[in-house]
C-alpha cells in the first residue's frame, strides 16, 4: 500500500484541525458538566472559574428532592420512549419487508409516500392531531404520546428496514423456501437475523427521537404529572427566575446521559442504519 509522506506543514494543519475539533465538540459538554457541579454563587463569579471551587451535587439534589417532580418526568420519558421503540420496530419491520420484497400495485407510490411523510413539518400535523386528541381523549395519555412519536419513527424505520432487506440477496430466502419454509418462516429465520443491525438502528433512532422530542409532549400533554423530561425542563426553568444556571445544567446532564450512553454503545448500528438504509434509499 502506498502512503503519502507527511510534510511538517501538512502534519501541523492536521493537528490544528484535530485540536479545534476536539475543543469545539467537547468544551460545551464539559462546561455543562462543570456548571452543574458549581454552586450558583460560583456561577456568577467574575472571572468564571474553569473548575468548580468546591464541587457539590446540590443542584442534582435540588432537582431530585425539590419541587420539580423530575423523577416522574424521567419515568414518563422512559415509558413513552420504550413504547415508541417497541411499536416502531414491529410495524416498520413488517412494512419495510413488504415494500422491499413483495410485488403489488401501488408499491412504488406507497414507498414514495412513506418517504415524503418524513419531510412534513410535524408542527402542522400537530394542530389537527391536537383537536383529534381532544375528541378521542388521548390528551395526557402515554398511548397518545407514543402514537405521536411514531409519526416520525415509523416512516423513517420503514425506509431503513427496506434498505436493509434490499441488501439481503433474495436467493438466500428463495433457497429457504425451496427447502419447505413458508414465506413467514423464511422471513423469520433467514431475513430477520440478517437485518438485525437495521432493526436495532430503527429502535435506536426511535428512542433518540422520542427522548429528545419537545414539540409533542409540550402540546399533547397538559397534565403536569404526565410531562416528559424536555417539557418538564421548560416548566422547571421557564419561571420568573432564570438564574438557576447550575440547576439547568444539572437537568441537562440528566437528560443527556441516557442518549449518550445508548449512542456510544450502539453507534455502529446507527452509522450502518443511516448510510445503508435510511438516507440512501
Amino acid at each position: 500500500m502506498i502512503e503519502r509522506k507527511f510534510s511538517i506543514l501538512w502534519y501541523g494543519a492536521l493537528a490544528a484541525i484535530l485540536l479545534f475539533t476536539v475543543i469545539w465538540t467537547l468544551f460545551p459538554m464539559f462546561w455543562m458538566l462543570v456548571t452543574s457541579l458549581k454552586t450558583n454563587l460560583d456561577v456568577f463569579q467574575v472571572p468564571p472559574t474553569i473548575l468548580p471551587q468546591d464541587p457539590s451535587l446540590k443542584s442534582y439534589e435540588n432537582l431530585i428532592f425539590g419541587s420539580t417532580p423530575i423523577y416522574k418526568y424521567f419515568i414518563n420519558s422512559v415509558i413513552t420512549s420504550l413504547g415508541t421503540v417497541f411499536i416502531s420496530i414491529i410495524l416498520a419491520t413488517l412494512a419495510g419487508y413488504a415494500l422491499s420484497r413483495l410485488r403489488f400495485r401501488f408499491r412504488k407510490a406507497i414507498s414514495i409516500g412513506v418517504l415524503v411523510t418524513q419531510m412534513f413539518p410535524l408542527v402542522v400535523l400537530l394542530i389537527p392531531l391536537y383537536l383529534l386528541y381532544v375528541k378521542t381523549h388521548l390528551l395526557n395519555t402515554y398511548i397518545g404520546l407514543i402514537l405521536g412519536f411514531t409519526s416520525f419513527s415509523i416512516p423513517f424505520g420503514i425506509w431503513m428496514i427496506k434498505g436493509f432487506v434490499d441488501s439481503v440477496p433474495i436467493e438466500i430466502e428463495e433457497a429457504a423456501m425451496v427447502d419447505g419454509c413458508s414465506r413467514f418462516q423464511a422471513m423469520r429465520m433467514v431475513v430477520l437475523p440478517l437485518i438485525l443491525p437495521g432493526i436495532v438502528a430503527t429502535g435506536v433512532f426511535a428512542f433518540l427521537d422520542a427522548w429528545n422530542n419537545l414539540l409533542f409532549p409540550l402540546t399533547l400533554v397538559n397534565d403536569i404529572s404526565m410531562k416528559t423530561l424536555p417539557p418538564g425542563m421548560i416548566l422547571a426553568f421557564g419561571g420568573e427566575f432564570k438564574h438557576d444556571w447550575s440547576g439547568m445544567m444539572a437537568a441537562s446532564t440528566i437528560i443527556s446521559i441516557p442518549v449518550v450512553v445508548v449512542f456510544i454503545l450502539l453507534q455502529r448500528y446507527l452509522v450502518e442504519g443511516l448510510t445503508g438504509g435510511a438516507v440512501k434509499g
Binding site: S67, I234, G238, G239, E240
Partner: peptide, 13 residues
C-alpha cells in the same frame, strides 16, 4: 405548580 410565565398559556390549553 406551573411557573408564572407559563401559567396563562397552560390554563388556556
Amino acid at each position: 405548580t406551573i411557573p408564572f410565565s407559563e401559567i396563562q398559556n397552560q390554563l388556556t390549553i
